[in-house]
Amino acid sequence: MSAGRHSQAQLEPRNAPAVSYWPARLDLLQGASGLLLVLFMWAHMTFVSSILVSEEAMYRVSLMFEGYYVFGSSHPWLVSVVALAITALLMLHAVLAMRKFPQNARQYADFLAHRRRMHHTDTTLWWWQLVTGFLLFFMAPAHLYTMFSQADQIGPYASSWRVYSTQWPLYLVLLVVVEIHAALGLYRLIVKWGWLRSVSRKYLRMIIGGLAVYLVLHGVSTLLAYYKLGETLRDTPGLRYQPVEVHP
């Protein structure tokens, strides 16, 4: 027992822990990489769907990505570089996101039990975000590897043939999964950082859900267009599209 007054500071000296900015940085990076991937994916879908305009349009787009309009000649390795960069971004995003996954069997069981009990929309949606993310971890690299390794095989006919002959089941599933994951990710980002505060979560879910449905439909029609075009190439595999006219 000691007499005399104690101030709070005396009673409990402050033990300042070493501050680490890493948890914050990793969380920021996870969000930023996700957002970039969403934006990339939307741009990608837009460019790919140029086939809905015309074969020529799609051809021009592919030329553009091969640097034709910059260098005056096609350099498919540019596409390989982009594919590689996106793969890297994807891997980064996946690794960061996995930090948030359940880490062991007990955590899985606890979370799943929680989800079943709660009947809570945003909790359930997070589970689907996790599941679609897990699928994308395998499916997206498959697609990206094709693009990386066959960057010269992108064009109205070459792509259509690839879709028709082998890839359409992957693309169809990938399309749906990626749109769901992107929509969920975007929604999560918006509520997480408090953007669009005047919109309730319920409305936000409706808006983003609507957008996702539209993008899936749009993607399916694009895929269908490639498939149908590919079908016409059944007897001439390997045929390359001949442009109507090439601007110098």
Partner: peptide, 21 residues
Amino acid sequence: FELIGTDEGIFGCMSLLGCDD
């Protein structure tokens, strides 16, 4: 930040928002 700028604090929150509901 020292108190909550961690994975056990604000950066561990995954915005499932069961809390809010």
